[in-house]
Design a protein around this nucleic acid. Sequence first.
DNA 1: GGGATTTGACCGAA
DNA 2: TTCGGTCAAATCCC
Length: 289
Amino acid sequence: MEMNSPHEKAVQAIRYGQRCAMRLKMRLDHPMADGGPVASYDLAKSIVESFSNAISILSAKPTTEDDQFSDLSSRDSSPSPQGSPSKKRKIDSTDSSENWRDDSPDPIYYDGYLWRKYGQKSIKKSNHQRSYYRCSYNKDHNCGATKHEQKIKDNPPVYRTTYFGHHTCKTEHNLDAIFIAGQDPVDDFKSAQMIRFGKDLTQENESYSKGFSLSVKHEEDIIREQTMDQYREITSNDQDCQDVIEEYLSSPSGSYPPSLSSGSESADFNSDLLFDNIDSWDQFYFGLP
DNA sequence: GGGATTTGACCGAA
DNA sequence: TTCGGTCAAATCCC
């Protein structure tokens, strides 16, 4: 599948979100109609994901040195410390290859691993404190992975997370597998595909230890709440939704979007998802079987 | 009560 | 001596 420029990818992501928003709007306007098997929550999830990905793509500026160290992944595109090394940079080429840094507009709430905070320090040359974390399995599995996180810019906010060491716990609690299973067909989307929502994670949790599952479930709930907040904001913009609905209704076939016509790009987004199974969106983004 | 976080103390490197 | 990383007791929260 040949991908287009980052700008075109962002447009495709936005269009996809627009289609999902349109369908959600239709469902809200006509709650008694058969809206298909896809849950409204899943539609909202896809909307948020697609817009987040568009933002991530458009925010990337690989021209400056600082940005070359940035993987503009947010909490809804959290990094896999070892999952996508191509998107990260070594801090020091002479140092161990396990050191990575990651910049994000938000603190990284979830990056595929569980961390326990063990310290916080004021840094001389910074107005912001640095927080120190080590892997929660530091003792259980003798995992030596650590990271520290610090706000390095105020406006716009940039949080820098620096990772150290290997996750020796990874083989037994490999949440990363959820994130990096299979190869994503669109490389530039990798940096924005780290969140896992709802039932998929819940199903995965069943295979983990009790405590681990509870911790992950907690983060999942946080993410779900954040998504629902964004969902409410989206659906509150009624005029914009109405414009989309009108565009949809004006389409002779009723299919969406009427303007998604440039051939190859429509193939990259599974429009069937809008009327069938939202899980295929996960397959598209996360490469899940 | 137990696990997670906070925060001042401690320590080593520069 | 300063600074950054870690320790560990105190505290918080479920």
